[in-house]
């Protein structure tokens, strides 16, 4: 009862209702209902192939890129249906940023990677752009490491640095939500813990949805957790609740490592 009340006092950033997604004739998401709360970290967990990435990509409509995808149901973002007829896709993606599983900096300089988004959205002033570069690199704790080589190729950075750069690139367009698909799976433990620390500081200002295969990670960083299984959401709740006292037997089996 106590938990329910506090949840209800939170702002909902996304409301997903009765969402179904088909790749051709294959149904990858089945009747998904989920709320994603503002300035909280929501973790998506579940075995491989259960639809976590697919779901994440429905939130910024990245699935639109794939041929033969059919989507039913609706997702509202700040109260408006993003699958509505004349929803502005570019405005959506500006507000809902994404960090990918493998770091994917553009083959440009560190500086150019970060100012890419702001430039696209019309920022031309050199001083403003310089400011954005410093602010975002500081936010991801990369500034000290790269301030002397801002104009060198981003591909020369280590994997962990590249991933933090990608997060900085995402922050540079001032999103409200950051979607992350296994952002640390390609990184070593040190780089991973840096990103996890970063997530904690970012959650004051941003709504974060993170897919992870790492139970400890979900437990450490997230406020809410949703457990996916073969295209369905089995259980969504506060992270402490899911990890200490899951309502569903399948959730318990999964987090205790009995399958998956």
């Amino acid at each position: 009862m106590q938990i329910k009340e506090t949840i209800e006092s939170l702002e909902k950033k996304f409301e997903v209702r009765d969402l179904n997604l088909f790749y051709g004739s294959f149904q990858a998401l089945k009747n998904i209902d989920m709320d994603i709360y503002e300035n909280k970290i929501t973790a998506l967990i579940g075995p491989s192939g259960c639809g976590k990435s697919t779901f994440l990509r429905t939130l910024n409509r990245m699935n639109d890129l794939i041929n033969g995808v059919k989507i039913e149901g609706h997702i509202t973002f700040d109260g408006k249906n993003i699958y509505g007829k004349d929803y502005d896709l570019i405005a959506l993606r500006k507000k809902v940023g994404m960090v990918f599983q493998k770091p994917n900096p553009f083959p440009k300089s560190i500086y150019e990677n970060i100012v890419y988004g702001p430039k696209i959205h019309g920022e031309k002033n050199r001083d403003v752009l310089d400011g954005i570069v410093e602010r975002t690199l500081r936010e991801v704790a990369l500034w000290e490491e790269v301030k002397d080589r801002l104009h060198r190729p981003a591909t020369g950075l280590s994997g962990g640095q590249q991933q933090r750069l990608c997060i900085a690139r995402c922050l540079a367009v001032e999103p409200e939500v950051i979607l992350m698909d296994e952002p640390t799976s390609a990184l070593d433990p040190v780089a991973t813990s840096k990103i996890e620390e970063l997530l904690n500081t970012l959650s004051d200002k941003y709504t974060i949805v993170i897919v992870t295969h790492n139970m400890q990670q979900a437990g450490r960083v997230s406020d809410f957790t949703s457990f996916f299984l073969s295209g369905k959401v089995i259980e969504s709740d506060k992270t402490e609740k899911i990890f200490s006292n899951p309502a569903n037997k399948k959730t318990e089996d999964y987090i205790t490592g009995r399958f998956g």
Binding site: K94, F100, P105
Partner: peptide, 13 residues
Amino acid sequence: PMTYREGSLSLGA
């Protein structure tokens, strides 16, 4: 790589 396209589009390009 497809990931460049995705990266750019996800920034609202």
